[in-house]
């Protein structure tokens, strides 16, 4: 493991000051579940670890005036899965974080750290992309809100600059009649990372057709996969088995998956078809269609 110093600042300003001064040499540490692995494997060599453990104001779950769910970057995954507020506002968020790794990891890992790892084999990025969540990043230079779908660039790469710190993840509310799910599929142990994870959101219109559909496939490529042209094509249509099948087919054909120990590219293509379909069916079950026959 590399030689590094560890500092434990108390405020966000102190963190930003350190990040501004040390740049690439510094690495913020949230839960450390991912960082400890890559440090041990010698994949990163920071000279300064900036622990966020003592920084006040970075953890917490709130709902703002417009109904957004705001998750502090240092909120532990376990806190989300056990939060009555999250279960009340956006149960799919609690359900998804509940599926990550195992309970021991979830007590340690954080919302912000998980996104910043940008590990392709992760559950929350696909859901947060489908929910159109934004990442709040601050530095001494600026404040910005980055949509999660733009945040992750590729393998372990984000748009974050070395002097920026993620402070919050903001998840917009869904219309009350929407149906949202995240379906995680593991090929090995229950504690494994996903072979594939599909987030699906469907919002019915007044006629019982699709006002909005979101399908994001995680863990099959270096970043969450979303095919806007496919989603555009089903908008305004009834969410029947035929249109679900069509979306599943086109996602399977339109994504070029990777191979790893959890499944080959061939297998993943097959599973995209199966799980896009299953996710959309489950989302359809959850949405409110009463009295709105197309």
């Amino acid at each position: 493991m590399a030689e590094f110093a560890v500092v434990e600042p108390a405020t966000v300003d102190e963190v930003l000051d350190l990040l501004a001064r040390y740049g690439e040499e510094a690495k913020p540490v949230a839960g450390g579940t991912w960082l400890a692995l890559v440090l041990r494997q010698g994949l990163l060599w920071p000279s300064l670890l900036v622990s966020l453990r003592r920084v006040s104001g970075l953890a917490g779950i709130t709902v703002d005036e417009v109904g957004n769910l705001r998750l502090g970057a240092m909120t532990r995954l376990r806190s989300i899965e056990t939060s009555p507020l999250v279960w009340e506002r956006l149960p799919v968020v609690a359900e998804t974080y509940r599926e990550v790794a195992n309970v021991r990891v979830r007590y340690q890992a954080t919302v912000g750290g998980n996104l910043c790892d940008a590990d392709y084999a992760s559950d929350p990025p696909a859901l947060l992309t489908a929910l159109d969540a934004r990442v709040i990043a601050v530095s001494q230079r600026r404040w910005r809100a980055i949509p999660v779908r733009d945040f992750i660039l590729g393998h372990y790469q984000t748009v974050l600059e070395p002097d920026e710190l993620v402070t919050e993840v903001v998840v917009p509310a869904l219309p009350p009649d929407a149906g949202a799910v995240y379906v995680k599929y593991r090929t090995r142990s229950h504690e494994d990372r996903p072979c594939i994870g599909v987030a699906a959101v469907v919002v019915p219109d007044a006629e019982g057709r699709l006002a909005r559909a979101e399908v994001v496939v995680g863990a099959v490529a270096e970043r969450p996969q979303r095919l806007p042209e496919v989603l555009d094509a089903v908008r305004g249509r009834a969410l029947d088995d035929a249109s679900i099948g069509e979306v599943a087919e086109r996602y399977a054909a339109g994504i070029d998956p990777l191979s790893d120990l959890r499944g080959s590219a061939w297998y993943r293509s097959e599973m995209i078809r199966v799980f896009v379909e299953r996710a959309l069916r489950a989302a359809r079950e959850r949405a409110q269609w009463e009295g709105r026959q197309p």
Binding site: L37, R188, S189, H190, E191, D192, L261
Partner: peptide, 13 residues
């Protein structure tokens, strides 16, 4: 060569 990529059964398995 690690317990993240080589998995043994957990209770949920």
């Amino acid at each position: 060569p690690n317990l993240s990529d080589y998995l043994i059964p957990s209770f949920l398995d």
